[in-house]
Design a protein around this nucleic acid. Structure first.
Lengths: 239, 239, 239, 239
DNA sequence: CATGAATGAGGTTTCATTCAT
DNA sequence: AATGAATGAAACCTCATTCAT
C-alpha cells in the first residue's frame, strides 16, 4: 500500500472521483481547491483525509447500507488504511453520524435564509423547490438524505437531530410562507398551512423513487415539481 | 378467507403456497384454526410455522434492518429452532423477499379492484386513501412498506417486483380515475394526471415520518390525508 | 480444517494430551473415563467440550498470560472452532473466570473438611501441607493458583471470590488448629495464631518459585515444607 | 529474545546512564537536578525523559499488566509523544525489561552490604526485614517486585537475571547469617539454613497479598514481620 | 421433520511500530 | 530530537449456514 505520498499520488482511482465528488457537495472542500498546488499544508492533510473518508463512507453506506458496509472498503476507497478511520472517528456508528451531520450543516444554513424580496408566494415556493433540485437532488446530498430516510430509524439521535435542525425549522419556514400566501389570497384553502408536509412530500418521494425505481422507471423530477406547483397554486397561465 | 391448496402442494412449489398463504392477509392469523380446532392438522403445522417465521422476521427486520437482524432472534421469536428457518426458506435473503412478497400479494389484489359503483371521483380517491389507512397504515403492512423503502435499494429484484406488481399498476389505476375526474370536470388541472405520484406522495411520507419522527413529533395522518384531499379537490363544503 | 468428525477423531494432537491432562486435575472429568466407549452421550458432549475448552484455556493462559493468550489457540488446542468457545462462555474474560472458579470448587470443599480424629496439632498441619502437595502442587491446580496470583489483580471480582471462599475460610480453619495447638502446649508463641498467613506463606512461595526459577534452580518443595514444619514445631525427633 | 547486548550496542550510553540513574533509587528523582538547577542541562533532558517514561511505564504495567498496557498511555503519562519512547527503548519488551532492571540495581547493591557490626543474629535479620519495609514495601519497588512475580514467567531472561543478581545472592547472604546464628546458638534447628527461602516467604506473601486482597482485607505487614521474627527466634522477652 | 451445537469466514477494533515533518 | 499521524497485522467476537441426532 502506498502510504504517505498523498500529495503526489493519492491512491490511483481516488483522485478523479474524489475531485468530482467534492465539487458536488463534499462536506469540507478544503482550502487548496482554489489554487490546488500551492502548499500541501501539513495540518490540512488531516482535514483532507477526513473528507476523503467521509466521501468514501457515503459511497459505501449508500450502496450497501450502514450495517452491510465494510470499513475495509471505506478505507480502501478513501486511500487510507483501516486504522486511519479510527484516528478521525470513534467507531463505525460515529462515522455514519458525522457523515450525515457534516453533509447536513449546509442544509441547516439553507433553512435560515429568509425568503427576502417582494416575490409572489408562488415564486417563493418555486425558488424553494428549485433549491431542492440544485442543492440536494442533483447533489450527493440526495444520497445523504436517502441515508437518513433508510437508516434513520436505527439512529434515534440522528433522527432527532435531523428533525430539530432541518425538518422542524423547514416546516415552520414553509408554513410562514404559505400563511402569507393565504393572507394575500394567493392560495385558497388552508390545507397546506395546516400540513406543510404536503408541500414537501413530493420531494421525499423523489428521493425514494430515485433510489428504488430509477433503473426501470426514471421520473422527471423537475417536471414533477412543476406539476406539484400547478397543483398547489393552480395551472400556470403560460408555459 | 382462502386457505385451500395446502394439501396439494407442499415442499417444491414455494410460490403457490406463499400466494395462498398471503391472500389471507396476515400470516400469523391462520383462519383455519377456527374451523378445525379438532386435530392440530398435520400438514397445517408447516404453514403455521412458516407464518410464525415470517411474522417474527417482520418484527426483526423492521426494528433492526435486514443486515443487522439475526436469524437467531427470528427463530426465537417464532418459537422454532434456527435450523427450522432453513426448512422453509433458502437463506436470509430469500426469507426477506418472501416476507415482502407475501405481504404484498393482497396489495396487488387491492390494486385490481375496479372502482365500482357510480361514485364521484373525489369519493373514489377518498376511498382509496381510506383503504390505505385501514389496509396498510394501521397494519403490519406499513412495516413491510417501510422495509421496501429502506431496504429495497439493496434488493433490485424486489424493487422491480414491487414496481411492476404494485406501483406501475397502482399508478395506472389512479391515473385512470384522475383522467375521468378531469373529463368530468371534477378536477381542474392535468398535473395529477401527468404525475399521479403526487397523489401518493403523502402516503409515502406518512410511512417515512412515522418511522423517523413519531417519537417526538407525531403526525395526524388521517387529518393529513383529508387535507391532501382538500388540496387536490378544493376545500370541502361541509364536514 | 477437519470440521465435524469430532466423534471419531477430535483433532490429532489433542486426544493424548487431553486425556493425560484430565487425569491430573481437569475441572470436569467426563463420565466416559469410567468405561470410555459405552455411549457417546449426546448431552454429555457439551460437558466434554466445555471441559476441553477449559483445559486448553488453562494451558494458554498459564503460558501466555490472560491478555496475551489467543482464543484462537485455545480453540485449536481444545479441538474446537473459535465460535464454539462462545457457545460455552460469554467472552474471554468469562472463560478465564469460569476456569478459575471451576478449578477452585474442589479447593473450597477441601477447606470444609473438619480435621477429624484425635491427631496431634503437628500431625494436623502436616496433613494440611501434604494435601497442598497432592491436591495442588502436583496438580494442574497449581497453575490455576498461579493464575490467581498473577492475574488476580486485574480481576477484582475473582480476587474477592477467591478471598471469601478460600483464603478467609482457610485462614480461619488454620487459626483454629493453631489456637488448639497453643492451648495444648504443642506450640509455644502466638505469632502464628495472630498471623496464620505465616503458615501459608511458603506454599505461595512454592507456586511463585516454580513458575519463575524452576528452570535453573529447582526447589525441593516437600523438603521445604518439612523444614517449615520443623521451624514451626521445632526439630523433629526421628526421621 | 535477545536482550542483553546493551553494553556493546544500544544508542550511545544507555547502560552507564541507566546505572547512574537507578543508583539513586527512583528514576524520577534524578540526583543531578539538585546540583545544576541553573541550566536545564542539554543532555540531561534525555535522562529526564527516560526517567519519566520508566515511571509512567511502571504505572501502566502495574495496573494493566504488561500485555494490556498501552504505550500510548505510557507516553501520555510521561508527557512525551509515542514515538519518543522508541528513541529510548527498542520496543515494548525492552522498555519492560529496562524498567525492571533499573529498579533492581539498588536491590542488588543492597544485597552486597555486609551485615557489619557486632549485632545479634536476630538484630541482623530484624534489620533485613526492616530494610524490606523501608526500601521496598513502602516504595514503588514493591510494584516492580510484583511485576516480576506476575510477569516474570513470560520473560525468562528477566527471571534469570533476577534470580542470579538478587535471589541467589540474597539467599546466600541470608544463609550465612542464619548459619552464624545456628553456630552461635541463637537459632535452634537448621531448617532455615537449609531453606532460607522460608525466611523470605512472608515478604513475597506481603507483596502478593497487597496486590490481591488489600481492598477488602488489609494486612498489617510490619506486625506480620514481627510475628515472623518471633516465630523464627522465639517470642521476644520484652516489648 | 425439527433441533441446536458447531463451524469458520468475515467484520470491527486495537495498538505496537514506523517515519515524514 | 521530538512528534504524532499513519499503518496493518492481529485479536476478539458475530452470525449465517450446515448437519448429526
Amino acid at each position: 500500500m502506498a502510504t504517505n505520498r498523498k500529495a503526489t499520488s493519492r491512491s490511483k482511482d481516488n483522485l478523479k472521483r474524489g475531485a468530482a465528488r467534492l465539487r458536488s457537495g463534499a462536506p469540507e472542500a478544503g482550502p487548496e481547491t482554489a489554487v490546488d498546488t500551492v502548499a500541501p499544508g501539513r495540518a490540512d492533510r488531516r482535514a483532507e483525509r477526513r473528507a476523503a473518508i467521509l466521501t468514501a463512507a457515503l459511497d459505501e453506506f449508500s450502496t450497501r447500507g450502514f450495517a452491510a458496509a465494510r470499513l475495509d472498503d471505506v478505507a480502501h476507497r478513501a486511500g487510507v488504511a483501516k486504522g486511519t478511520i479510527y484516528l478521525h472517528f470513534d467507531d463505525k456508528e460515529a462515522l455514519f453520524q458525522e457523515l450525515v451531520r457534516s453533509f447536513l450543516i449546509p442544509q441547516v444554513a439553507m433553512m435560515e435564509q429568509a425568503p427576502v424580496g417582494e416575490l409572489s408566494s408562488r415564486e417563493l415556493i418555486e425558488r424553494f423547490l428549485e433549491r431542492f433540485l440544485t442543492e440536494i437532488y442533483t447533489t450527493r446530498r440526495r444520497e445523504v438524505l436517502r441515508l437518513i430516510l433508510t437508516e434513520g430509524h436505527r439512529f434515534p439521535a440522528l433522527a432527532e437531530f435531523y428533525y430539530r435542525e432541518v425538518v422542524a425549522r423547514g416546516i415552520a419556514a414553509i408554513r410562514m410562507v404559505l400563511a402569507r400566501a393565504v393572507a394575500r389570497g394567493e392560495l385558497s384553502g388552508d390545507a397546506l398551512v395546516r400540513f406543510p408536509q404536503l408541500l414537501v412530500a413530493p420531494l421525499l418521494m423523489s428521493i425514494v423513487w430515485s433510489g428504488l425505481f430509477d433503473r426501470f422507471a426514471p421520473l422527471d423530477i423537475p417536471a414533477l415539481l412543476r406539476a406539484h406547483l400547478d397543483l398547489v397554486f393552480g395551472e400556470r397561465k403560460t408555459t
